[in-house]
C-alpha cells in the first residue's frame, strides 16, 4: 500500500516523532511504499540538525535523517510552521536576514499543498498527533 505520514509533535514534548519513526520503519519493512512524510506544527522541530541529545539517549533527529537517507524518503517540512519556529534552510535564513540555518539536508521545505497532495495520492494518511 501507499502510505503517507503526518508528524505534529516535537521530540521531548510528545512521542509523535518517535512513534511515526517506528511506524514508518515497520511499514517499509513490511514492503509498503511511503509516499511522503510531512512535518507540520511542532513536528517541524524534528527536522533541525542542531539538537545534541546525551549520547546514551535515543536520538530521534538522527534516526529520521538516517531513515530518510536509507530509503530516500520524501520528507517535507511545512515552510510556514518551520519559519515561525526557527527551523530554516540556507535560502530561508538569507531571505529573513538571519545569522544561521539548521534544517537538516534530508528534509525539504514546502507548503501545505504537499500534505493535501499526499493525502490524495496515498491509500492512507497516518497522523501522529501531539
Amino acid at each position: 500500500m501507499k502510505l503517507s505520514i503526518l508528524v505534529l509533535g516535537s521530540p521531548y514534548n510528545s512521542q509523535a516523532a518517535y512513534s511515526a519513526l517506528r511506524y514508518t520503519q515497520a511499514a517499509l519493512d513490511s514492503g509498503h511504499e511511503i509516499y511522503r512524510v510531512f512535518f507540520y506544527q511542532d513536528g517541524v522541530h524534528a527536522c533541525s540538525n542542531l539538537p545534541a541529545p546525551p549520547q546514551d539517549e535515543f536520538n530521534t533527529y538522527e534516526a529520521w535523517q538516517t531513515l530518510q537517507e536509507k530509503h530516500e524518503l520524501d520528507c517535507v517540512t511545512c515552510i510556514a510552521a518551520a519559519a515561525r519556529r526557527g527551523v530554516l534552510n540556507e535560502e530561508e535564513s538569507k531571505r529573513h536576514n538571519l545569522p544561521a540555518f539548521n534544517l537538516a539536508t534530508q528534509f525539504s521545505l514546502s507548503g501545505l499543498g504537499q500534505l493535501i497532495e499526499a493525502n490524495a495520492e496515498s491509500d492512507r494518511l497516518v497522523t501522529f498527533g501531539a
Binding site: M1, R22, Q25, A26, S30, L125, T127, A130
Partner: peptide, 20 residues
Amino acid sequence: ASYEDFVNLTCENDKLVNWY
C-alpha cells in the same frame, strides 16, 4: 500489537481516524 501489526491494521481497515 507490534508496530508491524499497527501497519497491518492500517491497511486491513478501509478508513483510519487518529484521535489525539
